[in-house]
């Protein structure tokens, strides 16, 4: 197969790809970001990098001598 045939084949494939992408179902940003927001809020309590540990002793990476108290 000549390199031109290969180019044509690659371009056809690309066009198929673009057609498929164009035809896919999309959701508005407002909807998808609302879901991201909801996910974040639903999981915020378990997110210790965000909220800190209820008790620093629970932090496996605490330095042994430190004392901290985070009330939530």
């Amino acid at each position: 197969m000549s390199s031109r045939d290969q180019t044509i084949q690659a371009m056809r494939k690309q066009i198929d790809q673009l057609r498929n992408e164009r035809n896919m179902k999309r959701m508005p940003i407002s909807v998808t970001t609302a879901e991201i927001l909801k996910y974040t809020q639903d999981n915020a309590r378990e997110d210790v990098l965000l909220t800190g540990f209820p008790n620093d002793k629970m932090n496996p990476y605490r330095p042994k001598s430190s004392f901290q108290c985070n009330l939530i």
Partner: peptide, 17 residues
């Protein structure tokens, strides 16, 4: 096709996050 695809995507860009 790329242009149309861009237009389609732009349409749904209603509210910035």
């Amino acid at each position: 096709l790329r242009k149309k695809l861009d237009q389609e995507r732009q349409k749904l860009n209603d509210i910035p996050i």
